[in-house]
Each structure stands twice: as C-alpha cells, then as structure tokens.
Amino acid sequence: MSGQIGNQPTPPEAEGPLLLDIAEVSKRFPVGKTGWLSGKSHSLVHAVDDVSLTLARGETLGLVGESGCGKSTLVRLLARLTDPTSGSIRFGTRELSAIPAKDFARDPDRARIQIVFQDAGESINPRFTAADAIADPLRQLQGLTGDTLRQKVEEAATLCGLPLELLARFPHQLSGGQRARVGIARAIGPRPDLLVLDEPTAALDVSVQVTILQLLVSLRESLGISYVFVSHDLNVVRLLCDRVVVMYLGRIVEVGPARAVFDAPLHPYTRGLVAAVPRLDGVRADALRLVGDPKSPIDPDPNACRFHGRCPIGTDRCGVEMPELRRFAGGRQAACHYAEEAPA
C-alpha cells in the first residue's frame, strides 16, 4: 500500500481507451454455516458468477436486473468495497483485484472510483452537514484543509446546482432532490474517472428525477467522467446509457447498445423484462409474462442455464448445457442457445 494521500492519476493517453476491464469476476458468500466442529463445507451463494465487462472512457454503462441478480454485489466489487473470490479488475493500467478492500481506502486510486448511493438520505451521515459530507472525501483523499477545502466544497456544490446556503444544513433538513445533489457533489469532489451511480433517483419523484438525470448528463460532459449506472427503471437506463448489461442470478445474460437491447432483446429474460415495464401508451396484448421466481442462488447447477425453468423458450438442452455469452452483430452479446430465434 502506498502511504501517499492524494490523487495522482496516470495520464489517460498512457492507459488506452478502456477505463475498466473486468474479466471472469466471481463473488461467492458462504451461507448456512454447518458449524466448525462438523467440518462440512459451506453452501455458497453465487452472488456474481464469471462476469466480464468493459467500460470505455466517457462511456455510460447501464446495469439492470431484478433484485438478487447480483448488480449490487457487482457494484461493490468494482468500487472496491468488497473483494472478489476470483477474477481480474483492471482499472486503467492497474490490476486492482489483488488490493484488499480494506487497504483500498488509502490507495491513490480510491479518489478515481466514487459512488453515488441509492438513498442519499441514508448515505449521508445524519450528524454531518451537507458541507461536512462533501468535504469528507476531499479531506481524506486529497488532504485538503482550510480555505482550499471550503473552496472545493463550494465548487462541487455549485456544479451540482446546490445553493451554497444549504451547505450548513443537516440531511433531514434537505428535500430528497437536495440530498441527491449532496450525494453527487460528494462523489464528484475528488474528480473521479469512474462514477458508479447506484439507483441515484429511485427514491425521487419524477419531476425531481428529471433534474437529477439532466444534472448527471451535464456533469458527464463537463467533467468527462465515465458512469456505471445501476437501475431497475429501464426507461431511465435507456435515456442515460450508451450500453447496457442485463444480469440474471449473478450472470450476464445480455450486453449491447441500450436502444438496440430494449428495442429488440436477444435474450428471453430481457424480452420479459422489457415487456413488463409499464408504458404510457398502454399495455400490449401480446406482452410476454415471466411467471415464477428466480431459482435459488445457493450452489446453482453449473451446467444449467440460470433462467432454465422460468424461461418461456427453454428446452432440455438448457438444463444440461450452460449457455456462454456469445457475440452478435452490432456489438451485442447474449447468453442463450436460442438467441438467433429472437423475434426481430
């Protein structure tokens, strides 16, 4: 671990076009402890299983899937809050997977990966003012103090459209939209290269959501940040993201340009997901319904498609042969034996 505090980014041109390159990352948690006397091995939850993805500089990648699909764990992995069981996480030119999460807090690259959390109210310490919250990473990661610190805090707040007179307030004295702005200002303060947005607008009313999404777009343009945007709201993902990754039970089932994926999904799960999203133009009669619940993520059959059993087009083959993520035209990928048969 480096003893240095502060952000010394490698020059982008030395790093190539890929900001983030994750290869075959898995995260398993032991469950159902059998007791240390019995000596039996634990069952494992396969929260994230063999996930590979890349993020180009300046790109916004959407991450969608239902609860329990592993997107939260993946977010924690790539933000280096938790350690992968296996696999590689390359950030720029550095391999980060070997750095233990507890040491990464003082790593020079800590400032370059920041998160905007789901519930801004919950992620701001209730005993911190807005200014304290925004100042915290600047103080910790860049060693700023005094007037420089105050100036940076005000700069971040201004960038995020947060009136300076609100900086002295505590989270419970702010509205939902204002809290979201504090959360974003805190994250962009250290000028990260990668910003992970974990359902940043899930708790907001639509009228406020619009302003926050537009703020994120303008920050992306003015600061050149790359986003990983996690959301269950496909409409929002479509508006904000260049590419989208669809996860199901810990695995990636489909990747591709956001509009292409949502307009003509290749994977039957994506089709069900898209069909289930309510639309202002009313329900479609032919809408595909995914019935049932996902299978258990505990010790899943390594040779069966995770979607097998709930899949409307699955066959016996899906129960004995795990479909690989295959490449398709237009920069798309899907993990389904029958992706070619998708209706256009």
Binding site: S207, Q209, L213, Q214, N235, V236, R238, L239, L240, L280
Partner: peptide, 20 residues
Amino acid sequence: RRLLAATPTAAGNLADLRSI
C-alpha cells in the same frame, strides 16, 4: 401536463423531459 412531460417514456430523449 407537467407531470407527463417529466415522465420518462419509452420513446423520448432525456433533453425532451421537463421538470416541474
């Protein structure tokens, strides 16, 4: 009208949405 203009629909662009 405002509420509708703020709702992300399947077709629109982000720039077309208007907050209240």
